[in-house]
């Protein structure tokens, strides 16, 4: 059962990442690209969790957590920069 579910989930997530990549490359505005990047971070977390199950290793959890933290900070910093032209006030 798991040997079918994991490839299916990988395929779905890869399709999701490709759609995000399309949005990232096409835009049309900068905010669309930031949003696409944010979605890519979240999908990457899902992929890392899936890899943890696939390789039966807990190491991937830490990578996923770091991506979660960094992705959030990146999104907030870039959108704040667009809003004010400055990150720290």
């Amino acid at each position: 059962m798991l040997s079918i579910a994991i490839p299916v989930a990988f395929a779905l997530l890869t399709a999701a990442q490709l759609l995000n990549l399309y949005r990232l490359l096409k835009g049309p505005t900068l905010l669309d690209r930031i949003l696409a990047l944010d979605t890519m971070y979240i999908d990457a977390i899902a992929m890392f969790i899936l890899m943890g199950v696939y390789f039966h290793s807990a190491v991937y959890f830490e990578a996923a957590l770091i991506i979660a933290v960094m992705g959030f900070i990146g999104t907030v910093a870039t959108s704040k920069f667009l809003m004010r032209g400055d990150i720290l006030e």
Partner: peptide, 27 residues
């Protein structure tokens, strides 16, 4: 069965979100 179910459902929701960002017309 439970693990497989949650994995596929999770991946499906993630893909549906990306389809939304692919298809929808405005930001």
């Amino acid at each position: 069965l439970l693990v497989s179910f949650f994995l596929v459902v999770g991946a499906f929701f993630a893909m549906a979100g990306s389809i939304g960002s692919f298809r929808l017309p405005d930001f």
